[in-house]
Simulated assay, not measured.
Amino acid sequence: MKHILMVSLTITLLISGCGTAEENSSGTEKSPESHQHSLNASKAVKSTALLHVNSAGDNISETSKNNSSENENTNKNGSNKEETFLKILTNYNNMFERIKSDVDYDNFNEEYVGYKFKTIKTKEQLYNQFTDIMTTDMAQTIWSGFVKEGDGSLYLIPRDLYPMFNKDNPYTIEKSNEATYKLVQKHKSELHGIFDMEFVFTKLEGQWKINEISFN
């Protein structure tokens, strides 16, 4: 009986010792001050992480704004060029209207088969009427077949007008380089038939002008 009691006591002491060791090694309770310190450290880490995320987010947002601004500028510049080209082509369509008032339709000259201009005396003077929208060479290409010089005067030969650009029909604008663009439109009319019109715009001395026209 005594032996049994001794064994029981020994087992009880061993169990108590193990419990104390476990409590000291892993189950030791933290003081309120220590627990609060851990919470503060955790909050500081989270705050730093959030600050980093927000900062990165702001940078991305700012980058997006810059990219959007660049895209808007690009679109705006492209749009400005298109508006410029369309304005030039409107003037191209109205070239005949520019000189119409200078033609004396009451005097048809049989020898030169045309109507005499009142103030414009030479072909060069006529070509200069259009140098704000095209090169002199381009004006010559268009108008040389419409006029004839003779007897110190210039005469307008009656004939069908050049093909017109129709802004209501589809067209494309292609960039060749910073100073050259090409506008292409399919022309369709009973007078001229069906073909592609190509207008090449070149920037000369800071001004956009038609430098070439082709009908394919």
Rank of each mutant, 00 (worst) to 15 (best):
S34D: 12
S34G: 08
S34V: 13
S34M: 12
H35P: 00
H35G: 08
H35R: 15
H35I: 14
Q36F: 04
Q36T: 08
Q36W: 02
Q36L: 10
Q36N: 06
H37A: 10
H37Y: 09
H37P: 00
S38D: 10
S38N: 08
S38H: 04
L39T: 12
L39N: 11
N40L: 14
N40M: 14
N40W: 13
N40D: 15
A41M: 08
A41C: 02
S42D: 06
S42T: 05
S42H: 06
S42F: 03
K43F: 15
K43S: 15
K43E: 15
A44R: 15
A44L: 15
A44N: 15
A44I: 07
A44H: 14
V45H: 13
V45M: 13
K46T: 11
S47K: 10
S47A: 12
T48K: 06
A49H: 06
A49K: 05
A49T: 06
A49M: 05
A49D: 05
A49P: 00
A49S: 07
L50K: 02
L50A: 10
L50M: 09
L51T: 05
L51D: 11
H52F: 07
H52I: 10
V53M: 10
V53G: 04
V53Q: 07
V53Y: 11
V53R: 10
V53D: 10
N54Q: 12
N54Y: 10
N54A: 14
S55F: 06
S55D: 05
S55G: 03
S55V: 01
A56W: 06
A56S: 14
A56Q: 13
A56E: 12
G57Q: 09
G57F: 04
G57K: 04
G57L: 08
D58G: 00
D58Q: 03
N59T: 07
I60D: 05
S61N: 10
S61W: 05
S61Y: 09
E62A: 11
E62R: 10
E62H: 08
T63M: 13
T63Y: 11
S64H: 08
K65M: 15
N66C: 03
N66G: 01
N67L: 08
N67Q: 13
S68H: 09
S68T: 12
S68W: 03
S68P: 01
S68G: 09
N71T: 05
E72T: 01
E72K: 02
E72Y: 02
E72S: 04
E72L: 01
N73E: 04
N73F: 03
N73G: 00
N73M: 05
T74A: 03
T74S: 07
T74N: 03
T74M: 07
T74R: 02
T74E: 10
N75L: 07
K76D: 11
K76L: 14
N77C: 00
N77K: 04
G78F: 00
G78Q: 02
G78A: 00
S79A: 14
N80D: 13
N80F: 07
N80I: 01
N80C: 06
N80Q: 14
K81F: 07
E82H: 03
E82D: 09
E82Y: 07
E82I: 08
E83G: 11
T84K: 04
T84H: 03
F85N: 00
F85G: 01
